[in-house]
Measured scan of single mutants.
Amino acid sequence: EWSVQQVSHWLMSLNLEQYVSEFSAQNITGEQLLQLDGNKLKALGMTASQDRAVVKKKLKEMK
């Protein structure tokens, strides 16, 4: 059960800090993070497919 802050730290740990402000603005918590798919990541401004791939891979490892 991650807070928005913990999601931000997680993104930073993946060197994806450029997305922290948008994820925070949308109040993405750990629970919501686990529901994100490629389209939702795109909607959050994650347009680079490599970045989405990293996030999806890491989320899969956490589930």
Rank of each mutant, 00 (worst) to 15 (best):
L16H: 03
K42I: 13
L34P: 05
E17C: 09
Q35V: 08
G38P: 08
I28Y: 00
A25V: 08
A25K: 15
F23V: 02
V54P: 01
L14I: 10
E22R: 11
L44K: 04
L11M: 07
E31R: 13
H9R: 12
Q50D: 09
A25D: 11
Q5N: 12
G38F: 01
L59W: 04
S21G: 13
H9M: 12
L44P: 05
Q35C: 12
R52A: 07
Q32G: 06
K57S: 12
S8A: 13
Q5E: 14
L34C: 08
G38H: 09
W10T: 05
V20W: 02
K40F: 05
L14N: 08
E17A: 13
E22V: 11
K60E: 15
Y19T: 07
D51W: 02
E1A: 10
K57R: 14
E61L: 07
S21F: 05
E17K: 11
L36E: 06
A53S: 11
L41R: 02
E61R: 07
S8P: 00
L16M: 14
K58T: 08
G45C: 01
K60P: 03
S3L: 00
R52G: 03
T29L: 00
L36Q: 07
S3T: 15
R52M: 07
F23D: 06
L16N: 02
L59V: 11
K40R: 13
K57N: 14
K56F: 15
K63V: 11
G38K: 12
Q35E: 14
L41Y: 02
Q26D: 00
L59Y: 05
A48R: 14
K40V: 01
N27K: 14
M46R: 00
Q18M: 09
L11R: 00
N15F: 04
V55Y: 00
Q26V: 03
D37Y: 01
K63N: 11
D37M: 00
K63R: 14
F23K: 04
G30M: 09
L34Q: 07
W2V: 01
K58L: 08
H9V: 07
Q50F: 07
Q18Y: 06
W10D: 04
S49N: 11
S49K: 15
S21D: 13
T29A: 13
F23T: 08
V55D: 03
T29F: 01
N27F: 03
Q50I: 09
M12R: 15
D37A: 00
S24H: 12
M62N: 01
N39R: 14
W10V: 00
Q5I: 12
D51M: 02
V20S: 12
L16A: 06
D37K: 06
S49L: 10
A43Y: 03
E1V: 04
D51I: 00
K60T: 10
K56N: 09
N27L: 04
G30I: 03
V54G: 05
V20D: 06
Q18S: 12
L36D: 08
S8G: 15
L34I: 10
S8D: 03
S49W: 14
E61T: 08
K58C: 10
N27C: 07
T47N: 09
M62R: 03
K40H: 08
M46G: 02
M46H: 08
F23A: 08
L44Y: 04
L41K: 04
S24N: 14
Q18G: 10
N39W: 06
G45Y: 00
Q6F: 01
N15T: 03
A53R: 12
K56I: 15
A25I: 08
R52L: 13
S3W: 02
A43L: 10
M62W: 07
L36H: 04
L34E: 08
L34R: 06
M62L: 15
L44V: 03
S13V: 05
S49R: 14
V54W: 09
G38L: 04
Y19W: 02
E22Y: 01
Q26Y: 00
G45T: 02
L36N: 05
E22W: 00
Q35L: 11
L59I: 15
N15G: 15
K40T: 09
K42M: 11
V4E: 10
S49C: 09
Q18D: 10
S24A: 15
H9N: 15
L34K: 07
A53T: 11
K40I: 00
K40P: 03
K63L: 07
Q35S: 12
S8Q: 10
K42A: 10
L44D: 07
L16F: 08
V7D: 00
Y19F: 09
M46W: 00
L41F: 02
T47R: 10
Y19K: 10
W10M: 06
